[in-house]
Structure formats: C-alpha cells, structure tokens
C-alpha cells in the first residue's frame, strides 16, 4: 500500500515537473521533495530530487555552462596546437573580420573571440561560446579577406548550431550522467574532465559528423554574404584546398570530401540567391598578414 502511494507521489511529481513553468517546476519539485522528507520517506525525497537532475540532464545546456565548456576546450586546443601565435596586428585583423561576420549571424547575441594558432597544419576549430581558432598554416593558404570571412563563417556556424554541445549532450545521456552543470563540474572535476576530453577527441581527432560540417559550410557562405563578401570566394578556397590536400587520408578522417562540400556550397549560393559581389579585399588581407605568416 505504501509502495502504491509512493509510486503515485513520484508520478504526480514527475508529471508536474514536466508540465509546469520554470519557477513553478522548481517550487513544485521542492514541495514534493519536502513532503516526502516530512513523511519520513528519505528515499522518495532523493528520488524526486534525482528526477529533477535527470530532467536537467535531458534539457539543453545554458550559456553560462557553455562558456565553461568552451573555455576548457579552448585550453586543450591551444595546448595541442602550439599555443597562440603572438602577432597583435594579425590577431586584431582576424577578430575584426570574424566579428564583422558574426554581427549578423544567426546567434548574434553572444561574444565571438578569434585567435591564430602557431601551427603549420591547415585547420580551424570552434569551441562552444564562440572560441574560434585558425592555424597559421590555414592563413598561409588564404588569398583574400572574403576567403577568410567564409572560413570564419563556417566556424561561427558550428557555434550557432551548438554542434559540440550537441555531442556533449548526447554523450551525457549515453553515459547516464544526468548533471553537467557548473556545480557538478566543481564537485566532480574528474567526471567533468572526462566530458571535456571526450568533446576534444571528437573535435580534434575524430571530427564532427559530416552533416554538421556540411551544415557549417552552408552557413559560412550565408553569414559572409550577409556582410557583403563574395560567397564564391569559399568555392575558390575549397578548390585550392582540394589541390593541396590531394588524397591526405588523415584530413578526410575529419572532413567530408571536397566534391560533396563544393556541391553543397554551390547549391546554397544558387538556392539562397547569394550575390557574387566581387568584394574579395585581397589587398587588405595581404597588408594585414604581410610578413607575419
């Protein structure tokens, strides 16, 4: 009989939790938890408390948590890619291009920060909360500002679509870890480290799903085009990258093949009616990077 009423109370609590408003939910959860504790049923109180955490684990990650995750991943990217390339004028230029593109992206309310990694490989990475990196090697292959704008637009796309957070959210559910809040990270630093290391492995070693890369390719040209850059610059850049990379298997482990990417970008330009403005700004790129790469 007691079991029956316990089950009833749990179901009642969880139904209220899943249907109430934000504050209402918390109050109801607290009332249900206190009621269970008051009746001497500590086990039930814990279950209701855990129910809240379980639901929390299934709900999206908030911006404060995203910043913590973004910082932790950024630390690891910098550590593994030779540190930040200390050229203030170049850093400032990359930030100006990146922030101009971010100004009218689909998630314009957050801060975007850009840094150049002191590494010869041709690569770029985006960590949550707008921590974006390009390698010195990548900048060496770029010929004008429009190409840089579309590359940064691609990385901004990973942030607007919360691609890394999505991976963390899913891994958290698979691992049965309900909590990924800051309180959890502070109290369980080893578990938090595991979550971050898993995300870093996916970002740097395994690569994101091809669908996420292609989605960011599409967004990259759209975001750069909104500011007025010529979106066809990305086609030229990808084509050059194809020539450079050839059949580099390590690169294709983390990126979709170029035919796919070029086809997606060209159809996006066509379908979205993006204007080939001819704005490439090769001189400004050359002046800003001259002698620093």
């Amino acid at each position: 009989m007691q079991n029956k009423s316990c089950r009833g109370l749990i179901v009642f609590g969880l139904v209220l939790l899943s249907t109430g408003s934000l504050t209402g939910c918390l109050e109801i959860q607290q009332v249900a938890e206190n009621a269970a504790r008051g009746s001497g049923n500590e086990r039930l109180a814990k279950t209701i408390h855990g129910g809240g955490n379980l639901i929390g684990g299934l709900l999206p990650i908030g911006y404060e948590e995203e910043q913590t995750i973004g910082q932790a991943i950024a630390l690891q990217v910098i550590a593994r890619y030779g540190g930040v390339y200390d050229q203030p004028n170049l850093t400032r230029y990359v930030n100006l291009v990146g922030r101009s593109v971010a100004l009218t992206c689909d998630r314009a309310d957050i801060e975007y920060r850009f840094a150049v990694l002191n590494h010869d490989s041709i690569n770029a990475f985006a960590a949550p909360a707008g921590y974006i990196f390009v390698t010195r090697g990548l900048l060496k292959t770029i010929r004008n500002e429009a190409e840089l704008a579309t590359v940064l637009g691609h990385e901004i796309g990973h942030v607007t679509q919360k691609h890394i957070l999505d991976i963390i959210q899913r891994s958290k559910q698979i691992a049965g870890v309900a909590e990924a809040g800051l309180a959890f990270a502070n109290k369980n630093p080893d578990a938090f480290k595991n979550v971050i290391d898993g995300a870093v492995k996916k970002l740097l070693d395994e690569g994101l799903d091809q669908s996420k890369e292609l989605e960011s390719d599409r967004l990259g040209v759209i975001f750069a085009s909104r500011v007025g850059y010529d979106p066809t610059a990305y086609v030229t850049f990808l084509d050059r990258l194809r020539t450079i990379k050839g059949d580099d298997q390590a690169f294709f482990k983390t990126h979709p093949n170029f035919s796919n990417r070029l086809s997606v970008v060209q159809s996006t330009i066509r379908e979205q009616g993006l204007q080939a403005t001819g704005i490439l700004l090769a001189d400004r790129f050359s002046r800003s990077s001259n002698g620093t790469l």
């Binding site: 959860q29 809240g52 929390g56 911006y63 404060e64 309180a183």
Partner: peptide, 23 residues
C-alpha cells in the same frame, strides 16, 4: 532572433542546480 538561453536551457540549468557563485 533567439537571445541568450532559451527557456529550456534555463530550465535545464536550474534543475542541474548550477552554482552561480562559481561563475
């Protein structure tokens, strides 16, 4: 445009009991 946390994200954070003082 979506601004800041959407309601679901804010709800998730509340349930995960984020310690605001640690931010």
């Amino acid at each position: 445009p979506a601004g800041g946390d959407n309601e679901l994200a804010a709800l998730g954070r509340s349930f995960r009991r984020t310690d605001a003082s640690s931010v």
